[in-house]
């Protein structure tokens, strides 16, 4: 496994690398979504793909989430392997019936005959002042549903490795990316916490590893530590790392774990860490009620109650619709200051 110390690769480029590599190998894979082809992607994730693969495989859809999501499900049942892009996961709600009532249930209700090997991907989470209906963070809502797999990349390395695994997986996968992170990696190490420096945030060069994937259900210890387990995923990893940097100066040595997938959820790594540290904070950028954070806390209590020296603190978005004003939105997020406060509190350092 090779890491590239001075690679400059944006999160969006890593997503594209994953799709390009898989599409070159398997003609059954196609990409469909709004503006993915001629516009080169609303967020430039699919830039150049139309030129390489042509309109048969990179398809501009009309603004019809129900139709193109369900089309993806139907095509997947027939044997193709669709990648369906939502310009934002906020728009997936329009397609709810297709993506959470059809895609995950097809295998079961057909008695194992028809699966749905489709990937649904797009931007997830708040932070661009896009207002309350454009700022959804859907993982907590959808993680309820048996039959789905949910991957949440936090770095360009995750972005490439998880998306390749998602595309190859025969089950429906929701790949929850982040609009705020798409440009991360343009300046290499400078865009990330020092704990990710040395190119640890980047996928290996294709010439060094042409088949780089990250398996589902394997969390990554991004920063080892002894004093407090910090469990997180997606953009919130960076809030957690920022907090960890500050707390190191206060003598609190956090162990920061990037879950990478929530369905499957790698509790083994979490529990092993909690047995070492005795304290746990979860950082989750969805709303508090019945969130992934709640689930991680519950499972931690189930599996390691005796190892905990305090309750599990979950840091979420505030329980409000996402506001427009920049300072309000920033305050709503589970930002580094909230995370640091939680870690101090849980370790009796407040």
């Amino acid at each position: 496994m090779v890491s590239t110390t001075d690679r400059k690769l944006e999160f969006r480029d890593a997503l594209r690398e994953a799709m390009n590599e898989e599409m070159r190998q398997d003609d059954r894979i196609f990409l469909m979504g709004e503006e993915v082809a001629q516009y080169n992607g609303a967020y430039k994730v699919s830039k150049g793909m139309l030129d390489e693969f042509g309109p048969r495989r990179v398809v501009d859809s009309p603004i019809s989430e129900t139709a193109f999501s369900g089309l993806g499900v139907g095509a997947a049942m027939y044997g193709l392997r669709p990648i369906i892009e939502f310009m934002s996961w906020s728009f997936c709600l329009v397609a709810a019936d297709q993506i959470i009532n059809n895609a995950p249930k097809m295998l079961y209700m057909s008695g194992g005959q028809f699966g749905c090997p489709a990937v649904f991907r797009g931007n997830n989470g708040a932070g661009g002042q896009l207002g309350s209906t454009h700022s959804w963070c859907v993982e907590s809502m959808f993680s309820q549903v048996p039959g789905l797999k949910i991957a949440i990349p936090a770095t360009p390395r995750d972005a490439k490795g998880l998306l390749k695994t998602a595309i190859r997986d025969d089950d429906p996968v929701f790949n929850l990316e982040s609009e705020r992170m798409l440009g991360a990696g343009a300046r290499g190490d400078k865009d990330f916490s020092r704990y990710l420096s040395g190119g640890r945030w980047a996928p290996p060069l294709p010439e060094d590893d042409a088949d780089f994937t990250i398996p589902f259900g394997k969390a990554e210890i991004v920063k080892p530590g002894d004093d407090c387990t910090v469990v997180t995923f997606g953009r919130a990893l960076h809030f957690a790392l920022e907090a960890a940097e500050a707390l190191e100066e206060e003598g609190i040595d956090c162990e920061v774990i990037n879950m990478r997938t929530v369905r499957p959820l790698d509790m083994d790594t979490v529990i092993k860490s909690v047995r070492k540290t005795s304290y746990c904070v979860v950082v989750d950028q969805s709303w508090p009620f019945a969130s992934i954070g709640s689930e991680v806390a519950k499972q931690t209590y189930d599996l390691a109650l005796d190892d905990l020296d305090n309750k599990v603190i979950v840091v979420n978005n505030d329980d409000v619709p996402a506001p427009y004003a920049k300072h309000l939105e920033a305050a709503m997020l589970p930002h580094a200051k909230k995370v640091a406060e939680a870690i101090r509190a849980v370790t009796y350092n407040a």
Binding site: F30, R56, V73, G74, A75, M77, L80, Q98
Partner: peptide, 16 residues
Amino acid sequence: GQCPLGAGLGFAIQYN
């Protein structure tokens, strides 16, 4: 709910 699935079947046939 089956209408988009039908479009998917048609799309896959044409794609293939």
